[in-house]
Design a binder for these strands. Structure first.
Lengths: 243, 243
DNA sequence: CGTACTATTGATAGATATCAACGCTGGTGG
DNA sequence: CCACCAGCGTTGATATCTATCAATAGTACG
């Protein structure tokens, strides 16, 4: 099933014709290896990138050698809708795992935006991205490392469930602990210890990039997770196991 | 001068007619005292709030008693454009200082959005808000407390200069150290010490809510500040003292 | 005058980073 | 096929940063 359509329909149903158009646009994805830059800070890209498979991220590299990941992109996510309005990228987008990516040229995007239902769904998506960013700020600024990390894992469960990439409370998480640390503002070493504590507390299992949430209700309570900020049309229906 | 028009024109010039329309919409602001909630998490407001004077913030209060400020709103900023698409607020918006606020009803917003130049400028504004959020994530996650705080002070200089609220490298900062701490994810005590270090290093002066940047070039270098993410049409012209 | 809020200081505890090292794995070249 | 190497996860010891607790002083305000 097409992850873009699934995602946009998490906001509101799309007319048949719109679905067909989206199917058509996303027909021939391009395979991109892991750790490849799709767009770099300073670029003025002429196409919008849409992730169809795999994990990618936004990030900024700092002079002191560290980097901060500011978004985790999963199938169905637009990487850089910004370029419709802003001329230059203020951050870099890179694949994390092996990905399949669609490049949509400006005229085609504008064609999509002429469909009211699609346009609304895209702006919904952009606003949810912003809400996610606010939640990440809370993860880093106000939650303990264990809770913030747990919160992120809850969020990914919901986002991946939205596009049909979960298996109950299990999902593929093809990122390294270093990358997890870059998103949580933590060291690799500390990230490792945080994960160990989550494992020891019986909250998760994580081996071979396979994450299992052992008790979603406890993980949500522990991390203070409330899916409101994802603005799903029907949150109760989306994740059956929800509290 | 109207801060909304000044801000939107930092992106691109607006036609005379659009300016007149905006003038008209923003004619009768409402005075709101400090520390007042404009919109609360869970609300489904029917009007959009526009800040014309004073400081406000977005924030979320956590069960553990702390709160995270996720945005600092200054004159010319829209508080909750989201409500055009999302039904319920996922965070609270409160005044910090005495403010003057415009409430714009849905039909009036839609009338504004029919003007192409205004619509583009509003989306520019929304995208810049997102870019600011990414930078705050870096402030908290990847920069030392002193550097993150310094970065925030640089950002506010640019944003306030945009709407004509600076006096050279000085501006009014009507927020408490506790509030500053809530935005940087720091304790009041630690915030106080961070500010003292910035003062001792000769970077700033801050007394009676009046912030003076003693050496903008040094403060920018110290904090790693690069105004690109604000996507101003003409950054060099905006702040004369820029490096 | 008393009360609340804000800024400030000192002492201490807890969280996180840093440095160094090791084992495991998969790939690669000899 | 084996030796080597790079990337990843892991562990221990230590340093640095930040939170917590407690107290004081100044200020504004009723």
């Amino acid at each position: 099933m097409n992850p873009l359509i699934r995602k946009l329909e998490a906001f509101a149903p799309l007319p048949e014709a719109d679905q067909r158009l989206l199917e058509q646009v996303t027909r021939f994805p391009q395979v991109v290896g892991p750790k490849v830059d799709l767009v770099r800070e300073g670029d003025t890209p002429k196409a919008v990138h849409l992730l169809m498979d795999g994990f990618a991220c936004r990030h900024k590299d700092l002079p002191n050698g560290t980097r901060q990941i500011t978004a985790c992109l999963v199938p169905g996510d637009f990487c850089d809708l910004h370029v419709l309005i802003l001329k230059t990228m203020d951050h870099t987008i890179s694949t994390l795992s092996l990905c399949r990516v669609i490049e949509i040229l400006q005229p085609q995007i504008l064609e999509l935006m002429e469909r009211p239902a699609i346009a609304r769904a895209m702006w919904w998506s952009a606003l949810v991205d912003e809400a996610i960013l606010r939640e990440w700020l809370i993860n880093i600024g106000s939650r303990a490392a264990e809770q913030g990390t747990a919160h992120l894992l809850c969020e990914l469960l919901f986002r991946l469930e939205m596009v049909g990439l979960t298996d109950g409370d299990r999902y593929e998480l093809p990122i390294t602990q270093a990358e997890l640390g870059d998103t949580m503002g933590l060291t690799v070493v500390h990230t490792n210890r945080v994960l160990q504590r989550l494992r020891k507390d019986g909250l998760i299992t994580l081996t071979n990039n396979s994450l299992v949430i052992l008790d979603i209700a406890r993980l949500k309570a522990f991390s203070g997770f409330n899916p409101n900020y994802l603005h799903l049309s029907n949150p109760n229906e989306t994740v059956p196991q929800s509290l």
